[in-house]
């Protein structure tokens, strides 16, 4: 009868192995989980993908993304590349601005700032399966994941600058690619 029981040492080994699995599961999966939560929040439950959404001025009520800067004006586009590549355009800004592309694991796979693109940003974002043919006359960026986030940051530390940023951002485009 005793042969059918597990020994204390077996339980200890099971506990240690499970603890290690829990640790590594957190380390490797948490970036996808946190990004998934952020993408869902920022796209209003996945209903507003492939379009720029202008964020309001950062206040104590801004709780969608951790550590927001109160000095920046943010626009965000949650991308979905399953059906087509997408075309991104961001209007120029007369101070610091950047466009950053984040993959589903949170990696910043591409970024460009106002000094590198003084006339504004223009590129096509292509998915990992190369299912669609991107336009050749604009820069093509390849994402390793079908989903992710594009973030437009503009330095706007005052209310007046924020209002100007709002106007500038109205010309931003994040939409299914129609360029051929």
């Amino acid at each position: 009868m005793s042969g059918a029981k597990l020994k204390k040492s077996h339980y200890l080994i099971i506990a240690i192995v499970a603890l290690a699995i829990g640790h590594f599961a957190y380390i490797f999966l948490s970036p996808y989980v946190f990004m998934g939560v952020a993408m869902k929040r920022l796209s209003n439950g996945w209903t507003m993908t492939n379009q720029f959404i202008q964020g309001p001025q950062t206040t104590m009520h801004s709780r969608q993304i951790v550590r927001p800067s109160p000095d920046m004006a943010y626009s965000v586009c949650v991308y979905d590349l399953r059906n087509s590549s997408i075309h991104i355009r961001a209007a120029p800004w007369d101070d610091y601005m950047s466009i950053s592309v984040f993959a589903a694991n949170g990696d910043n796979i591409y970024s460009v700032n106002d000094r590198e693109a003084p006339n504004g940003v223009d590129f096509v974002l292509e998915g990992p399966t190369y299912a669609t043919i991107a336009a050749t006359d604009v820069e093509t960026v390849y994402s390793p994941s079908m989903h992710g986030i594009i973030l437009d940051r503009r330095l706007a530390p005052t209310k007046q600058r924020f209002e100007l940023a709002k106007v500038a951002r109205q010309n931003n485009i994040c939409a299914p690619n129609t360029l051929k």
Binding site: S30, F34, M35, V66, S100, N105, N108
Partner: peptide, 21 residues
């Protein structure tokens, strides 16, 4: 934020600095 980030950096940033440059 880099592609070269180790899994521990990536996990830490995901929790307390998501979308960092």
């Amino acid at each position: 934020g880099t592609i070269a980030a180790d899994p521990y950096t990536r996990a830490t940033i995901a929790k307390s600095g998501l979308l960092a440059l």
